[in-house]
Write a protein that binds this DNA or RNA. Structure first.
Length: 873
DNA sequence: AGCACGCCGACT
DNA sequence: GTCGGCGTGCTC
């Protein structure tokens, strides 16, 4: 027996609970120098070949406890993950209750998410005798045992060796074999397309060992695709087939009928078919095997990012305030020890210049920096500032990059060709080796929390990563989240608590704009039924006269367009989800953005037959119409989901406004962030309080943040600015404090509420969502979970009452129906866990969920945890 | 997630 | 009987 074998512990790319652990594989001699933690490899797993990540490399146990297979292939010469990212993945999986593979996968570009491709070739005799077993399995036991265990069909003399070409009786067999012989190796898909009727024969040839299958992991590069289903035969043919369909395959029949019904929309997304009919992918595949349907990859989306020239900029002289902050941060940077700062600076206080100069220092230390910005603020303006200062040392990770472009940017980082990465949430995983600085701009933004698994918060990941590297974190905001602010102020014994740095004045010395609150109830009483208060109306008129610019914000949550009948009030809803359908202009149809269901726009109301069907969207269109009526000739740039879906639309519209080709910029939330136009002297918020009535404990905070941000858009340069905020609740503290630019008072008042109602930052939350096809079963199981968890918590001595002043508390509320009570024909209930103290609440919540999923009665129950949820709706 | 195995209901 | 759909279990 050979000594000193090495074994790789890997996490395989199979996102299931059973496989969420390491599996051991032998490292072939030739790969030894290359395999390290973070390597991406292809391994045989059961009957398949799957992608896997190496977690660690250890000496083989002697004697071995079980049969072990070998790594098949090394997929990258440079590991896509570093050891610290592997460790970070483990942390994320525990912190956010997800599979390890999900946590690892989210760190690398999707271009590297390899899938096995299956090839068929002629079996070579010598491969049976030496190649296969030797490469695949290290023989701990007897050779015969291994053969039997590994290749049950290939043991002994291969049958085909007894056959000559002439010995093959079936002409189809000969045809297939010679087809493959010509090309040496044929993708399985291609083969079955060439011989659609001969699936059985191919299977038989494989079984008899004449043909052999190999699987190779192929990266998907470039294009983003999705699986779609199409009819493989003509419509008449399909209709005929439907008539005489085997009664046994009821599900497949349904799928075929569905495809016919929607033949004008073919190919249909596989997901849509699956959810619409509640069938599995296997059913569709069976239909494909029978030759009625085909599954194909359809390109979804592509958007090239073009290189541009950037004006070089030099460091600006710092104000005294900035200088203090700058020095404080670089002192920490120079210690090369982990540190965190909450930089609270009013809009226009010059936070970006602090970022730029601290990055400069970081680069001089030969370390790298990550800059995180909210996706919506990742505008050309922002990129330009960093590219201007650091040139081609900057990589940009933009959501609109195509897969290939994103991959290129990512490679620049991994290969050390750039020093700075700027991007949204996922840029926190930029694979730098020596991180010195992580900056998170607008740290209060909810988009830093990923809503899909893994549901991580980039802020917490950033702090954790900085800790690994001895790096500094800067959290910057004019309106810090209450969580961050509270942590900084209380300077609790939390070692990661940030230090508060304040910049209360604007860098250019101009004052913050004056904010006027307009009580819209009073307007109504005075007979003004327009959507503009008299003061805002006058303000716009003045700006037009003075050739200055105006920004108008329509604060409406939920930026989707739905269809409603004006006669009876019918709203087009998804038949599988408890939600209204969204109108899509491009395809002129209605879609459900939860399950992908789509249908054509109805011409008449399906309920009452009326023709008064109307689209209701963000309402910006109505504001635009009203403006045109009130100010003939006014030039308006409208920015909302309807006008920004096209490529680079964002950029074009903003350029139009900056070049003063428009008087008014009208839009939703997206106009509030980070924009900086010198001639904007008026900002109007048309409905300030539409978010206040939402059932979300952060409603006041969000309103305050939005109003403060948008007010900061006015008068940033020489010209003084003015802000009009229209509201129906002028007495609300979030409106009042925002109008006075008084963050401190707002926070004091808001913290009081949070403390009384037991909400963060005075506790932490875990949202547990249950889903099941049957409502009564769901309710019973959810109640069972709630009771079990509360019981376990008590056993551990964690109090169940938040009012108790003890530190270790876990309280579980609910279950109640989720705000969206049904998605994809599954009912949804949820529980809210509130907890605080030095307890493993996440671990326990996860453990109870796992136990329930295992119990037989809970078979089809799905439980999902959202740790520190942002969206409670 | 796949992919095999095995049970059980509709058909020649 | 047997074909094939659909539940159950396993993957170093």
């Amino acid at each position: 027996m050979e000594m000193g074998n090495l074994v790789a512990k890997v996490i395989v790319d199979v996102p299931a609970k059973d496989t969420d652990r390491t599996f051991d594989y032998l490292i072939p001699e030739s790969m030894r120098p290359w395999i390290e933690p973070g390597s991406r490899v292809a391994v045989p797993f059961g009957k398949r070949t799957v992608q896997a990540f190496v977690i660690s490399v250890v000496p083989a146990e002697e004697p071995p406890k079980y049969r072990m297979r070998a790594i098949q292939e090394l997929l990258d010469l440079v590991p896509p993950l570093s050891p610290d990212l592997v460790e970070l993945g483990k942390w994320i999986s525990e912190r956010y209750a997800c599979n390890q593979i999900m946590a690892l996968q989210v760190m690398i570009p999707t271009a590297l998410k390899g899938k096995a491709e299956r090839y068929i070739s002629i079996a070579q005799q010598h491969e049976f005798t030496d190649h296969l077993p030797a490469a695949d399995v290290l023989n701990y036991g007897s050779e015969a045992d291994t053969h039997r265990a590994m290749q049950p069909d290939m043991r002994g003399e291969p049958e085909w060796a007894l056959l000559t070409d002439d010995g093959m009786s079936d002409p189809a067999e000969r045809q297939i074999v010679s087809f493959i012989q010509e090309k040496e190796q044929v993708p399985l898909q291609q083969l079955s397309r060439r011989f659609p009727e001969e699936a059985e024969i191919i299977k038989s040839l494989l079984r008899r060992g004449v043909l052999q299958e190999s699987q190779v992991i192929k990266d998907k590069l470039g294009k983003k695709t999705m699986k779609a289903v199409d009819l493989a035969i003509g419509i008449e043919e399909a209709s005929a087939a439907l008539e005489q369909f085997s009664a046994k395959a009821q599900r497949q029949r349904e799928v075929l009928a569905f495809l016919l019904e929607r033949s004008e929309f073919l190919p249909l997304p596989l997901k849509e078919v699956m959810t619409s009919l509640s069938v599995s992918a296997a059913t569709v595949k069976a239909l494909e095997d029978k030759g009625y349907a085909v599954l194909e990859d359809v390109e979804v989306f592509r958007d090239p990012y073009r290189g541009r020239n950037f004006k070089p900029t030099k460091p600006l002289p710092l104000t005294e305030e900035q200088q203090y902050v700058y020095e404080r941060i670089i002192r920490q940077l120079d210690t090369r020890e982990q540190g965190a700062y909450l930089l609270h600076g009013v809009t226009g206080s010059g936070k970006t210049e602090i970022y730029l100069q601290t990055i400069q220092r970081c680069i001089e230390q030969n370390r790298q920096a990550i800059v995180l910005v909210p996706e919506i603020a990742l505008t050309p303006q922002m990129v330009e500032r960093f590219k201007g200062r650091f040139g081609d040392q900057v990589a940009v990770m933009h959501s609109r990059l195509s897969g290939g472009e994103r991959y290129d940017e990512w490679r620049k980082i991994r290969e050390g060709r750039v020093k700075v990465a700027i991007g949204a949430r996922s840029a926190v995983f930029a694979p730098f080796r020596e991180l010195g600085l992580i900056i998170m701009d607008e740290e209060h933004e909810t988009s830093y929390k990923q809503e899909e698994t893994p549901k991580y918060h980039a802020r917490d990941v950033a702090v954790r990563r900085a800790h690994q590297h001895g790096a500094v974190v800067i959290l910057g905001s004019a309106t810090p989240s209450l969580e961050s602010y509270y942590a900084a102020r209380s300077q609790s014994n939390d070692e990661f608590a940030p230090l508060l740095l304040e910049m209360p004045t604007r860098a250019l010395g101009n004052s913050l704009p004056e904010v006027h609150i307009m009580d819209m109830r009073e307007e109504l009483r005075a007979g003004n039924r327009s959507m503009f208060s008299r003061a805002l109306h006058n303000g716009i008129a003045e700006r037009l006269e003075r050739k200055e610019q105006t920004v108008l914000l329509l604060n409406r949550r939920g930026h989707s367009t739905f269809v409603m009948c004006r006669s009876c009030g019918y709203v087009a809803g998804c038949p599988h989800c408890d939600i209204s359908l969204t109108y899509h202009q491009r395809s002129n149809n209605l879609r459900c953005h939860y399950c992908g269901y789509s249908e054509p726009v109805p011409q008449v109301c399906p309920e009452c037959g009326s023709e008064h069907i109307r689209y209701f969207g963000t309402g910006t269109q109505r504001v635009e119409e009203e403006l045109a009526k009130l100010f003939p000739g006014i030039r308006v740039v409208r920015m909302d989901v309807d006008t920004t879906t096209e490529k680079n639309a964002h950029e074009k519209l903003l350029k139009q406004f900056r070049d003063k080709k428009a008087d008014v910029l009208l839009g939703t939330q997206m106009v509030a962030k980070g924009l900086d136009f010198p001639d904007v002297t008026l900002v109007g918020v048309i409905t300030a309080d539409s978010a206040l009535n939402l059932p979300d404990f952060r409603a006041a905070e969000k309103t305050f943040q939005l109003l403060t941000q948008v007010a900061g858009r006015a008068g940033r340069h020489q010209l003084p600015g003015e802000v009009f905020v229209q509201t129906y609740t002028p007495e609300h503290y979030s409106v009042i404090h925002a109008s006075r630019h008084d963050y401190g008072s707002f926070v004091r008042e808001e913290l009081k509420h949070r403390r009384n109602l037991h909400y963060p930052p005075y506790c932490r939350l875990i949202l547990v969502t249950f889903s099941h096809e049957q409502l009564p079963v769901l309710v019973r199981l959810a109640e069972n979970y709630s009771a079990t968890l509360q019981g376990r918590a008590r056993q551990r001595g964690w109090f169940g009452n938040m009012d108790r002043l003890t530190s270790d508390v876990l309280d579980i509320l609910g279950p109640v129906a989720s705000p969206i009570s049904r998605i994809k024909n599954r009912y949804r209930f949820q529980c809210m866990i509130k907890w605080r103290g030095n307890i493993d609440a996440i671990g326990l919540a996860q453990q109870v969920a796992d136990e329930m999923a295992e119990s037989a009665q809970a078979q089809k129950l799905l439980i999902s945890l959202d740790v520190d949820p942002q969206m409670l709706m």
